[in-house]
C-alpha cells in the first residue's frame, strides 16, 4: 500500500483558487516531484502548495490512498478523471471534485463545492457535509450528466442536483435546493429531505423524494400510491408529460404552486 498525505501550506492570499487535477492516485503513485498545480494564473510545484509525505509503494493505482489536510476549500478538480485508489479529504473541498471519475473512492469529511461528481462514470464518492450546486450534473450545454457510479451526500445539496442525470445512483440524505433531477434521462435519485420543483422535463429514470416537494411540476400524471423504501406510502407520478417523458417520480408530500 502507498499512502500520500498532502497538507496545505499557509498562503498569502487563501482566496485564490487552486486547480489540482494532478491530485489523483494515477499521477501521484509515480512520484510527486514533477507534478504541478495552478494557483490562479501561476503554475506551482505541488510541494510549493502542499507538505508532501509519502509512505510505502504501490504496483497498481488501487493500492494508493491520498489524504488531504488543512484548508482545501479552494482546491478544485481533486480526483478529476480518477480511475482507481482512494482519496480522503479531511476538511472541505472546492469545486469539480471527482469530475469524470471512473473508478475508486473519494470521501470528503467536510463540505464540497459546486459540480461535485460532475459527469461521473463509475466508482463511489461520498460527502459527509453539504454540497454546492450542480452535484452529479453535467457541464454547460452537455446533454448527459452523471452516467454511472454512486454519489452519497449526508448533508444538504444545492440547486440543480443530478441535472441531466443519465445513469448511476445519487442519494442525498438531507434537503435539495431547486430543480433536482431536472432534464433527467436515467439513473436513480433519492432525496431523504425536502426539495422544490424536482424532475422538470425528465424523460426516464426514477426519483424518490421522502420529504416534502414544494412547487410540484404541474405536468406529471398521478398513477396512484406505492410503498416507499421506509414502508410508508408514496404518491407515484409519471412524466414529464410536457416532454413525452416516461420517468417515475415518487413523492411523500407535495404541493402545487396554484
Amino acid at each position: 500500500m502507498m499512502r500520500i498525505v498532502l497538507t496545505m501550506k499557509e498562503r498569502t492570499n487563501p482566496h485564490i483558487p487552486i486547480e489540482a487535477e494532478k491530485i489523483n492516485p494515477a499521477f501521484l503513485m509515480w512520484g510527486t516531484d514533477d507534478l504541478t498545480v495552478w494557483e490562479g494564473n501561476k503554475e506551482r510545484r505541488l510541494d510549493e502548495i502542499f507538505e508532501v509525505e509519502v509512505e510505502g509503494t504501490a504496483t497498481s493505482v488501487n493500492e494508493v490512498e491520498v489524504v488531504l489536510r488543512g484548508d482545501t476549500s479552494r482546491v478544485k478538480r481533486i480526483g478529476e478523471y480518477m480511475d482507481g485508489g482512494r482519496i480522503t479529504v479531511e476538511g472541505n473541498v472546492g469545486m469539480h471534485c471527482g469530475n469524470f471519475m471512473a473508478a475508486g473512492t473519494i470521501e470528503v469529511m467536510g463540505d464540497a463545492g459546486g459540480w461535485f461528481a460532475r459527469e461521473m462514470q463509475g466508482g463511489a464518492i461520498i460527502c459527509h457535509g453539504d454540497v454546492g450546486h450542480y452535484c452529479a450534473a453535467g457541464y454547460r450545454g452537455e446533454k448527459k450528466g452523471m452516467r454511472g457510479g454512486k454519489v452519497e451526500v449526508f448533508g444538504n445539496a444545492g440547486d440543480f442536483t443530478a441535472e441531466h442525470l443519465f445513469g448511476g445512483e445519487v442519494v442525498v440524505h438531507g434537503n435539495c435546493g431547486d430543480m433536482p433531477g431536472v432534464d433527467m434521462q436515467g439513473g436513480y435519485l433519492t432525496i431523504h429531505g425536502d426539495c422544490s420543483r424536482p424532475c422538470g422535463n425528465m424523460t426516464k429514470g426514477k426519483c424518490t423524494v421522502l420529504g416534502c416537494v414544494s412547487e410540484m411540476p404541474p405536468t406529471f400524471k398521478k398513477e396512484g400510491e406505492v410503498e416507499g423504501p421506509d414502508g410508508l406510502p408514496l404518491t407515484h407520478f409519471t412524466g414529464d408529460v410536457a416532454n413525452r417523458g416516461k420517468g417515475n417520480l415518487l413523492v411523500r408530500h407535495y404541493q402545487y404552486l396554484e
Partner: peptide
C-alpha cells in the same frame, strides 16, 4: 413570482 417554469411546462403539455 417564480411560476414561469410551471406555466411554460403546462403550455407545452
Amino acid at each position: 413570482p417564480g411560476g414561469d417554469y410551471a406555466v411554460l411546462s403546462a403550455l407545452r403539455a
